[in-house]
Structure formats: structure tokens, C-alpha cells
Design a protein around this nucleic acid. Structure first.
Length: 443
RNA sequence: GGCGCUAUCGUCUAACGGUUAGGACGGAGCCCUCUCAAGGCUUAAAUACGGGUUCGAUUCCCGUUAGCGCUACCA
């Protein structure tokens, strides 16, 4: 595995975007054996370009670069080359170059005899295109820098790349690459193009338009497990054909094949409300639940620490939140009442149980206060004393538990009551029940 | 405009030319239950359209439509 940074476009290449790539690869545990930067291999690129030029398979184009965006949707015919430049005599070309006139080096695509360029794609099958439909693409820019096409082919040849696996947006560029390999006298590698990942509106995902969605670090920072994320990504455009969904890295590697890759683009289903694909979130939850409590606790620790909370009780809390969080970061929202000293403000009406009224809630809390003061503070001890209390008050257990839960957690939906109270401890529980009682009296 | 690629439930996807078109996520409902979650069960939901070929097309061919990609020195 070779990591090659394709950075021939100096303007767009930034340190931060590069770091984001490294961070993402590290998080996903994707390693490599050799590493190169194209910008450090310019001599090789120029050498290959020179060789192609010497074979007369490329020519200098002194036409100034087109200003601004070319009109691509316009009704103009297909542009193939700039008039006059292809036919320039060698002497004329050399003279203008020697005079310091800037030029781009263009590939001289066969025109007199139209021929068919073809290659076999490991995913899309046999591909062919008439040379008459391929423009004289640039090899070198007028500043002497190689284009992506030249640089990647030169490097692929030099580094003996066996497989080029890349986005389908390069499928039609591949004909140009075949031409370059041919001119360089090199056998092309195996090509495999993968379907694109697109936004719900069908357009291809781009850094500019879909910022966070395309950055791997976004998923890391949101609390995805790397294995879950890899699993999800693998299921976009490929499937094991046997209904398996949750698969380990090992299983994925064993069963993956380029032939099994789909040819149509896959939608990453995100929106403003739901920034992550629901299936990715679900898979992540599956992975969290599949981990041991110790493993989950270890994952949660830095998150809780970062939020400025004490992690002493985290092992117990983990047991209660593990099947309630889908992203690791949700520990902070699902378990907030475990960490905060003071509960976030909540509506006193929440304390009123189903089929009950404020008076019932008040009686429950007052009794709870007495019971919690003396009960054995364990799951079973709390359960038996609170159930007994409900009985003596003549109400249903649920009606007893609900006000206490809200008093302790600040909301109706929370982990199981007795375990929660046990983790919170007698002191905190009594304090919160007392606060809830006051709250109730004020309405 | 030219060239190329693609087209199965909302989304990700299965289906030697012969299936009641399957699974998963999400949705709805029920069960379980101290709430939530998890779990179990049930349910709605698709072959873009039109022609062929064939005894029989989701599947093969052609066309249409739609989407995407590339298209004068981005990658």
C-alpha cells in the first residue's frame, strides 16, 4: 500500500486539509508502507513529459490560459484543440519557447486516423471511446507544473502501481491516461472505478458544498467507532450479497471483491436535522452494544473528561447508558444528570404522574424522602422499599416511580430507576427529591 | 452542446430469464416493561417509461426520460 499525496495544484493544497486526511486515516487504522508527495517528484513528471514531446506525441500550445470558467453548457461544438498550435513547426515552436513565451504542453491525440481507445475496468467492464471525442489535454501547465493526468500516470508507472481504484468521476479521464501510458511505453495498471457517494439531492459529495459530511474526522468527533464507520462505508456501493450487514474488518477483507461493486451512485442520507445517515448511526449503536462494558467505558472516558466531568462513577454509568447511546458523545446528553451537580431546569408539571395530580406527586415525593433516607441503597433494596411505599400510598408502582425519576433525572425518559438512584447515591437523591418538592409547591 | 456512466421500496441493497421481487435502516402498530432504550412480533413501501427478443423478462437488446460524471493549463 502506497500513500501518495496528489498535490500538483499548489493553490488548493493546504496544510490543514492534509492533516485532516492523516487524522482520518489514523483513526480508521488504515496504514501504508510507502509515502510520496507528487510535488516532490516534479523532475520525474517533467522527464516523462519531455520524452513524450520528443516522440512528437505532444506539442506546445502558446495560447494563453482561458480566463474564468469556460461555458460548458453552451451550444458550442466540442473543443478538441486550439487552432494553429497542433500544426506549429518544430522550428517555430522552439523559437517561441526560446524567446520565453509561456506554453502548455498538450497531448497530440490521434486525429488523422480515428481509432478506438479501450481498457477493461474491474467494475464497469469493457470501456471504449473514439479518439475523435478526446480533446488534446494538457500535460504541463504554462508554469511548468504537471497536470494531474501526467503526474499520476508518471508516478503510477514509476511506482509500479498494480491497481488504480478511484472514483467514477475519473472513468472518462482514464482514456487520456491510457494514451499517456501508451506514449510512455508502459503497460497500464488495472483500473477499477467505484460509484460516487452523493448527497440526497444526487450531486456528488464535495468539500465545498457538503463540508462536514465528507470529512472523516467529523464522524470521529461525533462519537462514531472507527470499525462501525468503515463497516458503513463498505456497504455503500457494495454488499456481501448474503444479507450480512454488521461485519468485522476481517470479514470485509475476506469477502470483498471489485466484481461485486455496484455501478450506480450511492446516496449518503443526511439532512440538516439528521447530520448522519440513520443507518450509520444504527450500525454504530450495534457496535457499541457489542462491546464489553469495559471497552465502552474506555471509549467514553476521554469524552466525559473533556466535558469537564469526574469519571469516578463512569463504570457504573456505562452499564446504564450503553444501550441508550447511538454515538459515544450522547453519553453527555443521555447521562447528563449523572455528571451535573445541579439538574438542568425542568417543568414542575413533569413531576405529576400519569392519571395523577400535583397532590399525588407531592405525597409521593414526601414519602420518597422518608424512604430514601433509610432504605438500603442498592438496586434490590430500593426496589422493595419503593414498591412497598407505593402499596402503602395505595397507588400503582409506576405512579410512584415517575415523580421520583423526574426529580432525580430532570426528565421522564431515563435509565431504569433503581440502578440510577443507586449510582446517584443517597445524598444526591435526597437533595433532588427535596428540590422537586419545593418546585411542586410553587405551582 | 459532445462523450461516457447509471436507473429495484424514502435510503443502502438481494434476486442462473421462471420468487407471493428478499434483507437492512428509517416509518407505523403490537408485545415485553417502573419511563426510555434494547429485544420479540406484525405491517406499509420498489423493478422510471415505451418497444422488442422469449413460452416467460427486474434480469438480454433498442429507444425515451431522468440523474450523475468528464468536457480549453482542478484533482
Amino acid at each position: 500500500m502506497i500513500l501518495r499525496i496528489d498535490d500538483t495544484d499548489v493553490e488548493r493544497n493546504t496544510e490543514t486539509s492534509l492533516n485532516s486526511i492523516f487524522d482520518g486515516l489514523a483513526w480508521l487504522d488504515l496504514g501504508w508502507d510507502e509515502q510520496y508527495k507528487q510535488s516532490e517528484r516534479l523532475a520525474l513528471h517533467k522527464q516523462i513529459a519531455e520524452a513524450i514531446f520528443l516522440k512528437d506525441l505532444a506539442y506546445r500550445d502558446f495560447t494563453p490560459p482561458q480566463a474564468g470558467e469556460a461555458d460548458k453548457s453552451g451550444a458550442q461544438g466540442t473543443w478538441l484543440f486550439n487552432a494553429g498550435m497542433r500544426e506549429l513547426t518544430r522550428e517555430e515552436s522552439d523559437r517561441r519557447a526560446a524567446a520565453g513565451e509561456p506554453f502548455a504542453l498538450r497531448y497530440r491525440v490521434p486525429r488523422d486516423t480515428v481509432r478506438s481507445i479501450h481498457f477493461t475496468d474491474a467494475v464497469y467492464g469493457e470501456q471504449s471511446k473514439s479518439s475523435a471525442d478526446i480533446e488534446d489535454f494538457a500535460l504541463l501547465r504554462s508554469d511548468g507544473m504537471p497536470t494531474y493526468h501526467l503526474a499520476s500516470c508518471a508516478d503510477d508507472a514509476d511506482l509500479r502501481i498494480s491497481h488504480i481504484i478511484r472514483g467514477q468521476d475519473h472513468l472518462t479521464n482514464t482514456f487520456k491516461h491510457v494514451l499517456i501510458f501508451e506514449a510512455a511505453g508502459v503497460t497500464p495498471p488495472t483500473f477499477a472505478h467505484l460509484p460516487l457517494l452523493v448527497a440526497p439531492d444526487g450531486t456528488k459529495l464535495s468539500k465545498r458544498r457538503h463540508g462536514p459530511v465528507v470529512s472523516v474526522t467529523t464522524y470521529r468527533d461525533a462519537g462514531f467507532l472507527p470499525q462501525a464507520f468503515v463497516n458503513f462505508i463498505c456497504l455503500l456501493g457494495w454488499s456481501p450479497k448474503d444479507d450480512r450487514e454488521k461485519m468485522s474488518r476481517q470479514e470485509l477483507v475476506e469477502v470483498f471483491s471489485l466484481e461485486g461493486v455496484n455501478r450506480s451512485n450511492a446516496v449518503v442520507n443526511f439532512s440538516e436535522q439528521e447530520p448522519f445517515d440513520p443507518k450509520a448511526v444504527w450500525l454504530n449503536a450495534e457496535y457499541i452494544r457489542a462491546q464489553s462494558p469495559e471497552e465502552v467505558c474506555a471509549e467514553l472516558t476521554p469524552i466525559v473528561k473533556n466535558a469537564g466531568y469526574d469519571t469516578a462513577k463512569l463504570p457504573q454509568i456505562t452499564l446504564l447508558v450503553r444501550e441508550r447511546i447511538r454515538l459515544l458523545n450522547e453519553v453527555l446528553t443521555v447521562g447528563d444528570f449523572f455528571f451535573e451537580d445541579e439538574l438542568a431546569p425542568y417543568d414542575a408539571a413533569e413531576l405529576i404522574p400519569k392519571k395523577g395530580d400535583a397532590a399525588m406527586a407531592l405525597r409521593v415525593l414526601q414519602r420518597a424522602c422518608e424512604v430514601l433516607a433509610v432504605a438500603e441503597f442498592t438496586h434490590d433494596g430500593l426496589e422493595s422499599s419503593l414498591r412497598a411505599a407505593a402499596g402503602s400510598l395505595g397507588i400503582k408502582a409506576g405512579q410512584m416511580f415517575e415523580p421520583i425519576r423526574v426529580a432525580a433525572c430532570g426528565r421522564k425518559n431515563a435509565p431504569p430507576l433503581f440502578a440510577t438512584l443507586e449510582v446517584l447515591g443517597r445524598e444526591t437523591c435526597l437533595k433532588r427529591v427535596a428540590q422537586a418538592t419545593e418546585k411542586l409547591k410553587s405551582i
